[in-house]
Design a protein around this nucleic acid. Structure first.
Length: 278
DNA sequence: ACCCAGGAAATTC
DNA sequence: GAATTTCATGGG
């Protein structure tokens, strides 16, 4: 994989196992918008970029080679060989193989831990379209304006100074007090997100579940999408149905060390095939 | 009007 | 302790 500076951004050559729509619009991140030419614009780690994939060339506009090395290489998880992982997990179950081949361009993004925590708190008993709206209003109201009309995700320190009523413009409903509790506990060090990268899995879960509004599912999503614990296997309503209908008798620990990647293949496959569950 | 959405807390049995 | 209800909001 080679990165070169071009006018207005960078070009990364030799990109494999990536489809932008499959990865950015599969319910793991809520901050990307697809444009008419199949490119996407969005913000991560305080940087606004527009990205476009042409074959195996990934163009990242408004980014530098230095930012590629410190941010985007990791964000897109280019250090992990997804083709090889699919070869492994396809042996687990034929339906898993089918799900993986259905969307082989899914990657697990390495999002900012606090952003993943907040967005999946917002996700509970909610739908993806409305989650995106709430997240956008959260950034517009309380995030730093990094460019005109482009906002970073707000910091825990900023949000810790607010109360639940301050979040009324988000129209997040009952989740507003959960967000404030998460902000305070992260900002005051009562919950150490970075420590959750290396803690034993059950301990990492318990650490996150100190927050009101964080149960097993939100903790698992935070660990998978924000702390890159790829053994995490979040089970939401879709995954519950998928496990019952497509993988009867199996449970999370049957899916191996990359269970989280398998989970995302299954989640996406299930959402794209709702007729399987009628 | 009713049901559901990448759930979890509060209440009841 | 396990099962049920409630929690805001918006779209179908």
């Amino acid at each position: 994989m080679v990165c070169n500076e071009i006018t207005g951004g960078i070009k990364v050559s030799g990109v494999t196992d990536l489809d932008l729509a499959q990865t950015l619009d599969c319910g793991q991140s809520f901050r990307w918008t697809e444009l008419s030419d199949n490119s996407f614009e969005g913000v991560a780690y305080g940087k606004f970029v527009t990205i476009k994939l042409e074959g195996t060339d990934l163009y990242i506009y408004n980014a530098t080679k230095s930012e590629y090395e410190t941010i985007w290489f990791n964000y897109f998880d280019f250090g992990l060989n997804y083709g090889k992982i699919r070869e492994e997990i396809r042996k687990i179950h034929p339906v898993l193989n089918e799900a993986a081949e259905y969307a082989p361009g899914i990657r697990i993004l390495r999002q900012e831990p606090y952003e993943a925590l907040c967005t999946f708190i917002i996700s509970q008993n909610n739908n993806i379209k409305r989650i995106k709206g709430i997240v956008r209003r959260l950034c517009e109201n309380f995030g730093k304006e990094i460019e005109k009309g482009r906002y970073a995700f707000p910091t825990a320190e900023k949000m810790a100074q607010l109360n639940a009523d301050d979040l009324a413009p988000l129209r997040a409903g009952f989740r507003d007090r959960y967000l404030i509790d998460a902000a305070k506990k992260v900002a005051y060090g009562e919950v150490d997100l970075e420590k959750c990268r290396t803690l034993e899995y059950e301990q990492a879960r318990k650490e996150l579940m100190k927050i009101t509004g964080v149960g097993i599912k939100v903790a698992d999503c935070t660990l998978l999408f924000g702390l890159h614990r790829v053994e995490a296997f979040p089970v939401d309503v879709w995954m519950k149905r998928a496990m019952e209908i497509l993988f009867p008798g199996m449970s999370a620990n049957d899916f191996g060390e990359f269970a989280g990647i398998a989970q995302q293949y299954i989640f996406h496959y299930s959402r794209m095939h709702p007729e399987l569950f009628i």
